[in-house]
Amino acid sequence: MTGTTPPRDSAQRITDVRDRLAREMDLWVASAGPDGMPYLVPLSFLWDGADVWLVTRLSNPTGRNLAANPRTRLALGDTRDVVLLDGEVTTYTHDEVPVEAADGFHAKTGWNARRAGPAYRWFRVRPVDVQAWHEEPELAGRQVMTDGEWTDA
């Protein structure tokens, strides 16, 4: 965005967010432990059109935090093209994860996480609030989802 580029409207921001979720391979996952210690790690993900799917070891801090706390924040982009997604987390074993999610994750990332063994868990993140902006001129109107509903819906 430049000083002469007009801010995107809500509908365009939502289209751009959905596009990025479908196209990008990795995002940042923020979680916190019971002691309040924050963790921020990059993970590969799948966007199935409604939810974000993540896979990681249950034994690492992020896996433990996601399993214990039903909220997380996900982030795409850099400081000039930001998407922040706050969501509710549900944990699945390899036996419980929907086949469509596991197959989609494998097709997108090239990693068949179902073969990684029982130490791994699947995490579905259902978006609740989403913000998107390009630089300062788009800070106004950055909320594109509230309480699980896109603002153009």
Rank of each mutant, 00 (worst) to 15 (best):
L58G: 09
L58K: 07
L58M: 07
S59W: 05
N60A: 00
P61H: 07
P61F: 03
P61T: 01
T62H: 01
G63T: 00
R64N: 00
R64C: 00
N65I: 02
N65K: 00
L66N: 07
L66D: 01
L66C: 05
L66S: 08
A67I: 07
A68M: 08
A68W: 02
A68E: 15
N69P: 00
N69S: 13
P70T: 12
P70N: 12
P70E: 15
P70Q: 12
R71V: 12
R71C: 04
R71L: 12
R73N: 11
L74Y: 04
A75C: 11
L76M: 13
L76K: 10
L76T: 08
G77N: 11
D78T: 11
D78G: 14
D78K: 13
D78N: 15
T79I: 11
T79G: 13
T79P: 09
R80M: 10
R80E: 14
R80T: 14
D81N: 15
V82L: 14
L84D: 07
L84T: 09
L84A: 09
L85H: 04
L85D: 06
L85V: 14
G87F: 01
G87E: 00
E88H: 12
E88K: 10
E88Q: 13
E88C: 03
E88I: 02
T90I: 04
T91C: 04
Y92S: 08
Y92M: 06
Y92K: 08
Y92E: 06
T93H: 02
T93E: 04
T93W: 02
T93D: 06
T93K: 06
H94C: 04
H94A: 15
H94G: 07
E96T: 03
E96F: 05
E96M: 00
E96H: 09
E96G: 03
V97H: 01
V97S: 04
P98I: 14
P98V: 15
P98Y: 15
E100P: 06
E100W: 12
E100T: 12
A102E: 02
D103T: 13
D103G: 05
D103S: 11
G104Y: 06
F105M: 09
H106M: 11
H106P: 03
K108P: 10
K108R: 14
K108H: 13
T109V: 10
T109Y: 09
G110I: 11
G110C: 10
W111E: 14
N112H: 08
N112A: 08
N112Q: 09
A113R: 05
A113T: 06
R114I: 04
R114S: 06
R115I: 05
R115K: 03
A116W: 13
A116N: 09
G117W: 10
G117H: 12
P118K: 12
P118Q: 12
P118T: 11
A119K: 14
A119F: 10
A119Y: 06
Y120D: 02
Y120N: 03
Y120R: 02
Y120P: 01
Y120I: 06
Y120E: 01
